[in-house]
């Protein structure tokens, strides 16, 4: 493995499989245990450096690090010297001077973790940067698919919705491609990035045509906060054409699963009845996130690098 995890492309097939296998072993080792803690990273310090709001990712990383006995420092831009104008670089160097071994960073600017990786000696884990990537989400999605369907190679995955703004979609496209899945992105033309033609995916504008062939439907959140122009006429129209409701879910194959990275806009991209159905892996994804992040932290920090 490389020293940092900045994007899905940092993982080749062997590395990605190692992360998933490690997560599975950790899951199995901790299942049913009273003491859900391992001494592996005792004495290491992991800093959660969050410039954007987050519930599940930050808590998930915090729990993962704590279960491996690392010391965790949570830093959020609000209420820190960032509000006095301190730069990312100075903040990072400050944290490193205090002895952090890994920085888990979420930032609104695409590429911020790459910059960070050049400034610090420890490992950098990208926990979401702008509209670029969110590799641990892709890993936990792949892990969830593999657990539910038993395989990844040849699995047909439809990624539906706001692909343009979605770092989850980008990370998943590349990771799933590496792992041999066949990906179709489904979105209105206004919510597809310009370069989508160069991605290893098929593109469709018609959700109803894609659903019957899909093993996995991954719904994306419509990211209102990143939209400074109108990408579709109305929420109602978007929901009618690209939302997953009970009627559309009925078109899915028997084994097909429905995923969503959260947080959900219930009633917008996904209907409540779908989110709460047995096909939905949404809660499972959150639980798997902790195991996968434990695996990532172990593999990045456990031993000598390189």
């Amino acid at each position: 493995m490389k020293r940092h995890l900045l994007e899905s492309a940092d993982l080749d097939r062997a590395d990605a499989t190692l992360v998933l296998d490690t997560a599975a072993q950790i899951d199995q080792a901790l299942a049913g245990r009273e003491v859900k803690k391992l001494p592996t990273l005792r004495g290491r310090t992991v800093v959660n450096l969050f410039y954007e709001d987050s519930t599940r990712t930050r808590i998930s990383f915090e729990l993962a690090a704590k279960r491996l006995s690392a010391d965790v420092i949570n830093f959020s831009a609000k209420g820190s010297s960032v509000s006095k104008g301190e730069s990312l670089k100075d903040t990072a160097l400050t944290l490193e001077a205090m002895g952090s071994d890994a920085i888990v960073v979420r930032h609104g600017a695409s590429g911020a973790p790459h910059r960070l990786a050049n400034w610090v000696r420890g490992s950098v884990v990208n926990a979401g940067d702008g509209t670029h990537e969110h590799p641990t989400q892709a890993l936990l999605d792949a892990y969830t698919i593999r657990r539910r369907l038993g395989r990844l190679a040849g699995v047909r995955v439809a990624i539906v919705g706001d692909v343009l703004h979605s770092r989850v979609a980008r990370s998943n496209v590349w990771l799933l491609h590496t792992l041999g899945a066949e990906v179709t992105v489904v979105a209105p033309p206004t919510l597809l990035p310009v370069g989508v033609g160069t991605w290893p995916v098929e593109v469709s504008y018609d959700l109803d045509a894609v659903l019957p062939k899909a093993d996995v439907v991954m719904m994306l959140r419509v990211q209102g906060e990143r939209m400074n122009a109108s990408y579709f006429p109305s929420a109602r129209e978007y929901s009618r054409r690209y939302g997953l409701d009970g009627r559309r879910m009925a078109a899915l194959g028997d084994e097909a699963i429905v995923m969503h990275p959260g947080p959900m806009n219930r009633g917008m991209e996904i209907a409540a009845e779908v989110a709460d159905s047995v096909r939905s892996t949404i809660v499972e994804q959150v639980g798997n996130g902790v195991s996968v992040r434990m695996a990532v932290l172990y593999l990045l920090l456990g031993g000598r690098s390189e």
Partner: peptide, 22 residues
Amino acid sequence: ADITLYRDDLRRRGVRALEPTI
């Protein structure tokens, strides 16, 4: 019982794939 995550020499020897604990 896989002991990899309990070893005291991980830093020196580097990480390795885990084995099952059953």
